[in-house]
């Protein structure tokens, strides 16, 4: 059997997500911290919605009840060298 990948950055499979939900991880935040979903280079751009759907299905939630993890900058990766040369504003 081949793997069905859900999070391509962290190599997390559909099977792993389902098993974690069955084990009682019923929160995207916990799934993220257990499996690493959404913490890789794409920062959840491909996996979060899929994982939310799987969680809703497996746990019997309505998708609208699912709490998304906090969104933080950057929306796209930025080299530290770019930041280091930025103009600082006065606070």
């Amino acid at each position: 059997m081949g793997k069905v990948i859900v999070c391509f950055c962290e190599d997390v499979t559909l099977e792993e997500v389902r098993r974690a939900v069955k084990e009682g991880y019923r929160d995207l935040e916990h799934l993220k911290r257990l499996l690493g979903i959404g913490t890789g280079p794409c920062q959840g751009k491909q996996c979060l919605v899929t994982v939310a759907k799987i969680l809703a299905e497996e746990a019997g939630f309505d998708p609208s009840e699912i709490r998304l993890p906090t969104f933080r900058p950057p929306a796209r990766p930025v080299p530290l060298g770019v930041l280091a040369h930025a103009e600082l504003e006065e606070e």
Partner: peptide, 14 residues
Amino acid sequence: TGAYEEPGLFENND
């Protein structure tokens, strides 16, 4: 900012 695309869900989808 538009949208991202939903990945395919099947074995060896990568």
